[in-house]
Design a protein around this nucleic acid. Structure first.
Lengths: 218, 218, 218, 218
DNA sequence: GATGAATGAGGATTCATTCAT
DNA sequence: CATGAATGAATCCTCATTCAT
């Protein structure tokens, strides 16, 4: 907060206005990597600095504490995720295709950023006091869009008439569970196949409808 | 500090042969509670001892380290979960009912033991080095039973012909995602309703089949 | 806060009830010495422990922080000072002698505990936020006694009729200034001589009353 | 590395030859303020620079270290104090009036510069290694003048015949104690009244001489 | 001269674990 | 077996100082 006059430059070394942003970015990347690799508690701020080739103090010039650094890394990840899904779904008009694309993008993001799953776990484990974990804040922020979307599908007769929130809960939990399972237990099939399988059940269920003994939910 | 005569009395103070087992049990309960409440790193062994009214050294007479104590608590929880599901499904013969009962029992267990979700998170966060987290070890142990089960359903024409593992993955991830979401974001509906909703989609999918435009997965 | 039953002893190592008090005492002594020798900021808790031959953690078993340890050391000193003056003045009935004895005891205390002057300085320098430094709290606590005392002397015609607080302020400041000067600049004369000199001026002033040109305060 | 024309003006921006001196002055003032406000250890050089609106490096262009900056600030204060007392006493010829004026000027200086008391404390607390604190160096420097002065008063029969150093010690300690007490505990009376009271005792003592029972020092 | 990003030594505090009684 | 005082390794964070521009 030292600088006050943005225009009038006094004498002295000119400030590289992009340096801070770049440094912040670098630190965030190094931090995310280390936090994911060793967990929050086992990550030394010194290690983050070492990996980047800077001194520990430099980290603290950009983030006030290890905690804030970590949370900034999680936030960054969430923003990337949101952006990633936005980017591929925004221009799609066919609703069923859009679901496919969205689900695939979601799984792909975590596939490309496995570290991010770890960060979400670490956040939950270490910062139990935060009212809502970052991920769930994000989910709530985007849920309205999808709620409208599914309601339209019901109105168009494409999707069965059922409470929209039921649909949202189910698909969200399915995806959430999937990324954790993939992360922990590994993924046995290709990304596309997994999305395909998941959506097959999500769309059609598992029961064989030609069979008259198939149970009818009340 | 008075006598408690379990069996045949000899001279001197009778040994309570069950005391060690009971103590172990108490410590495990207290530990699970504290670990879930404050997280692994923020739980002092001293606190566990305090809550139980014993000295810290006593804890170490029963468990060689904080780590082992924690893992024993997680194992205990997993055993309880398995037993709980076993108990309600073992005598059920109707396959569809069995799925319902199993799913409900699963959700009910985590509903009654919310702490256990926390323990699973803590385990993942803190013991990244363990080859497989306890929960996934358990899942793999029980997966064979369910694999056979679903194959029978397919053979009987009740379930569509599809790879059994696809079914297993989907339902497992759905459930896994659900318990975490319930834990973090709260549950908006009754336990039964949630199980109902989840199974409705699992069984029938979301698409309206009377609609000829419903997409046909290749 | 683990112990609850003071009487009924359970099994286990019997507690040495005097050990905590003795340890506290030792730590306080070592701390006072180090703080006085190197100043608050330049005193390592490790050094205090080393000097005592214990581990750093032991210090923290008795005092929650370096700050509290320091303040406890100052408090201890103040209590010793008060006790020391009490002890010699309590049985003296001749008022003028009592002043002499009190002043001498005061100077003697700081003479014997030069470290304590340093602690008072350190307290002021480091803990500016404390509402009142310990020393001034002490002064206010004992001022009432001396106020009554001097009022009696005035009523008896021994001391000139003047506001009692003027007397108290002057003698207090004289003493306070003296101990600091002694500490910083050294003392050129014997303790007794210094008390004598100080009281000579305090009792009689410096002016020669036989001289008619001596100024008369309005 | 360009030319610097000290006298005759060449082309280009004229150098402000007083700028360095003014800068030094500003830094000293800002430093004194911050040191007094937060204490030596809790004052960041950055804060001093911020308050002045310059960069931290600039501070180091004028003072080689935080330590030297602080000591320069203390020295500045001492010079101001000496000058202040000199200014009012130099033309006074009446010796008793001169004492009054000097004492009042002394108290007034600290009244107007309460920060300076804090600086003296901070110096003592932080720089225990310095052979003599600045204040006592000053006292010794000016003591000769006052020693001669009091000797004259004795020769003239105005002041009782007593060792001059006794007088000097007493008044010095009285004043020293007073400024600290004022600073810490506040001053209950006006500045003039306080000087008056102090001198009343200093000149006449507290004893009532009409009373034959007044004790006679040896 | 001025600037401010980078540096890294320094020190307080925590808490799992030990072990004498 | 129980006890709890003692231990000391592990780490975050601060901030005076440097120096390239």
């Amino acid at each position: 907060m030292t600088s006050s006059t943005p225009k009038k430059r006094g004498p002295g070394r000119p400030r590289d206005v992009n340096l801070p942003a770049r440094r912040r970015e670098q630190i965030l990347r190094s931090a995310a990597d280390q936090f994911a690799r060793h967990g929050y508690r086992h990550t030394d701020v010194q290690k983050i600095a070492d990996q980047l080739g800077v001194a520990k103090g430099t980290i603290y010039n950009y983030f006030p504490s290890k905690r804030e650094l970590f949370l900034a890394a999680v936030d960054q990840g969430i923003r990337d995720l949101s952006g990633s899904i936005q980017a591929v779904t925004v221009h799609e008009t066919d609703p069923v295709k859009m679901i496919k694309i969205g689900v695939t993008a979601y799984l792909a993001f975590f596939d490309e950023h496995p570290n991010f799953v770890e960060l979400l776990i670490q956040e939950r484990a270490e910062f139990k006091d935060r009212t809502k974990p970052t991920y769930f804040q994000h989910r709530e922020a985007s849920v309205d869009r999808w709620r409208d979307f599914y309601r339209d599908l019901i109105d168009q007769g494409i999707v069965r008439d059922m409470p929209v929130d039921r649909i949202l809960d189910v698909i969200n939990n399915m995806l959430y569970g999937t990324i954790f399972t993939n992360y922990h237990a590994g993924r046995s099939q290709s990304l596309e196949q997994q999305a395909q399988d998941l959506l097959d059940v999500f769309f059609h269920g598992i029961l064989d409808l030609r069979n008259p003994t198939s149970p009818q939910e009340k």
